[in-house]
Every structure is written in C-alpha cells, then in structure tokens.
Amino acid sequence: MSDSLVTEITNAGNPVDAILRTDRMPHIWCPGCGIGTTVNSFARALIDSKIDLGSLALVSGIGCTGRVAGYVKLDSFHTTHGRAIPFATGLKLANPNLNVVVYSGDGDLSAIGGNHLIHAARRNIDLKVICVNNLIYAMTGGQTAPTTPGHSITSTNPYGTFEPSFNLPHLVEAAGAVYVARWTTFHVRQLARSISEAFKKKGFSFIEVISPCPTLYQRRNKLGDALDTMKYYKEKSKVRNGSPTSEAGLTMTGEIIVGKFVDRDRPDYGTMMRAQYAEALGDEYVEQDQREQDRMEHDRTENDQPEMVCS
C-alpha cells in the first residue's frame, strides 16, 4: 500500500473511521459479504446516537462475524465459541454502567450459544445483541446451521437440508426479549436506526440482520452473487413493524418479513435483583453505588485531615 493512500485514509474523514481500526483494513471478509455493511450501520448508529465510546464494550464469539471485535476501535472481547453472551453478562454485572453489545453470528449465538441466548433473554440482562444471520456456518466451510432454511444445499446436506430451522425473532420473543427487530443488509438506514433505539432500551435487545454469504450459501444454492442477493432482499423483503414473530420464518427464496417486531418494557436483571434484595433484607441492603460514594466520601475526609495539620 502506498504512502499517499495511507494519508488519504487518515485525513479524508470517512465518518466510520473513528470507530474502526483502519490499520487492520482491508478485512478478511469475502467480496460482497454483508458483515462489513452491518458494521457500517453499527458505526453510524454509534456516531449518531452520541454514545460515550469509553463506556461501551463489544463482545464477539467465534466465526466470520466474530471477527468484528478485532476491527472496531472500542473495548472489545473476542471470546470462545458460543460464549459471547456469558462474557457480556459478566461484564454487565461487574460494571452495570457499561453499555454492552454482543456482535456475533447465527451459528455462534443460536447453535453453540443457543442456551445462553434464551437464558439471557429470560433474565432480561441489559445487553444489545446484534446477530448477523448468513443462514450457514460460514467460517468452517458451509455446514448446516440451525437457521439454514429447508431444501438449501450445504456441505453437510448435499441433497438439501431437511431439518426445520430456527425463527430467531420468535425464539427470543418467547424467551422474553424487550426489543426484537429484523433487517437485511439492504436496509442500512433502518438497521442504524434500530441499533440507536436498542441503546435507549433497558433490557435484552435482539436485532437480527439477514446477510449474504456469497462464497458458501449463495454459490452452493445457485442464488448468484452478493449483488443478486441484495436485489432479492430489495424485491422480496416486506417491512411489517409489529407483525407477529411467529409469521416471520425464513425460506430459501421466499418473502423476508422485516421490521421492528417487539418493543415492550420489563424490569431487567439488575432491577429485579435489587428489588428482591431490598424486599428480603430491608435496611440492611445498601446498593453498591451508595457504598462506593460513602467510601469515596470517607477517603476524601481522611485525605483532607493531614493537609489541615500541615497548614
């Protein structure tokens, strides 16, 4: 890469450069892969909603989408396979003031980490989960995933998939998420707006993004390249905000229902925990923030005293 080009990148002012580790570009994702587009929308949502980047942590699992953690200039974790949500839960419980985002793929979140996904939604832990769903295990060579629609050709089902697939918005709504939306990589502005909205919610927010995998899914199923897939998304996706998630199942070439499906309020894990302790322990229960403040107050008065003696 020439020096002049580097100067252009750093000085030109791509709006998302503030969020990206530009020294690691170009990234490893295939030509036309939708993950970069979702990162673009995510970065713009962060910039538009003016979130303090110092109080934000991004957690990724393993897989193509798991690489996002390495490309963003935020505090980020690249965790073990399927365990992005447990790591994020730990972060959130240890420091409740953090905004914790889980950015991972469908295989990582719904297959290996499927149990963690439903239990985090049940407990309503305050996490923003962005699930890039490319309908397949992409990094390992295109095996059937729990989200692969019926009749798709994959490396483990060369005569077509016959397993019923997960409808992720329906799953997380049933488990108790407070915010559920689905978009495709064609809906970049809607996706950015949805991510901004999720940051304003307290509780388990889940945003599914349907993304092309031109190398393994589209090619094996003769669905063309990334551009053809984006045209298919444009033509066949129907925005139905508030539509029942039970009707939002995916098929290989059929209609894709997108939109904001669920936006409701439920007390989150931290609120329920504090309410329970306050009820059970009464005055004995002191919240940690209060304790911290008391301790800092105590330290300050102790530090003041020697100064007074000196003067």
């Binding site: 450069d17 170009p26 994702w29 036309g32």
Partner: peptide
C-alpha cells in the same frame, strides 16, 4: 447522501 458509504462492506467509499 453517503448511501454508497453505508452499503460498502469494505469501508472503501464514502460521500461528503
């Protein structure tokens, strides 16, 4: 409008 920048999966284009 910067729609090219929003669609680009490689952060290789943007409009101002």
């Amino acid at each position: 409008c910067d729609l090219c920048g929003m669609y680009c999966p490689d952060f290789a284009i943007y409009a101002t």
